[in-house]
Amino acid sequence: MAKIGIISFAHMHAQSYAACLNALPNAELAGIWDDDAKRGRKMAREFGAKFVGNLDKLLASDIDGVIICSENMKHRSMVEAAAKAGKWILCEKPLAPTVKEAKEMIALCKKAGVGLGTAFPCRFAPTLMDARAQIQSGAFGEILAISATNNGTCPFDWFVDEKLSGGGATMDHTVHVADVLRWIMEKEFTKVYCEKGNLLHKKEIKTDDVGMLNLEMEGGIQVSHIASWSRAKSYPTWGDVTLEFIGTGGVLNVDAFNQKVNVYCDATMSTEWAPYGDNPDMGLVGDFVNACDERIAPSVTGEDGLRATEVTVAAYKSAKSQKMVKI
């Protein structure tokens, strides 16, 4: 049994993690702190948990670990506080907007002897686990090229405020795919070229909302990736994660969240895709709870978060210099 606290509900994924903690038999959502106290109290009521008005108080309590879902720029200081209090940490992605901060966070956790995990739930999606098994079985031979997308609707709010997010869609929607491809291929990214821009929300936001990346992985595998907040408000779902693997033995296509039934609703005059697939967050949170219980590192580590951040940082550098950048 592990007692887990949640630090900040700024990132909407916190709500899903809270629900997972409540659903898991070996976990307890033991406390919530949020620098937006109003939001924190509301969430505490919603998930039947205790709101703690002071972060130090939460960290001084008998909780085993914390899930941090603050704005990206606040990750580092909150990780530092939790590590110093000896708590296990699951940090929302991106681990940090900069390589320096990510490295510092890893070092702090190492020094404190606590486990640090990065919240990459895609690793727990059965569709992507299946794709990984198929690629690793060797049935598709040598993988020579990959095309990926991670499209979504614009999240607005602090996500589009660079002072709090550290970057736009290119950061937000590259880290998942970067991590998934590292995990499936068991190879690192070596180079990236990137074109990005605010192309679809010129009047509303200042950050980039589309990033088109050309990357290389070890062994010269050519990879293209589209990171975007391009889904229309009227689109039937939030977005996608798609991958096309070109191998000497064949082609594997993944549309990771294409587990849906089509719903045509007259009352709302809308078309919706109702999902039926498993919730990958259950696997992610379950893994973290087990890590807290057993005092071991979570499966998806801080180093994994760092590797993904290295990719996005290099992508932004490339977009500025218009050159391919080494990772």
Binding site: A145, L213, S224
Partner: peptide, 27 residues
């Protein structure tokens, strides 16, 4: 910017990924 496979072995295979910036800013 473009990446292209242009392989002859073990099979004839080509796969091309172009990233184009237009003058009007579109990608």
């Amino acid at each position: 910017f473009c990446q292209a496979l242009m392989r002859s072995k073990p099979h004839l295979m080509d796969y091309s990924q172009s990233n184009i910036r237009l003058k009007n800013g579109m990608i």
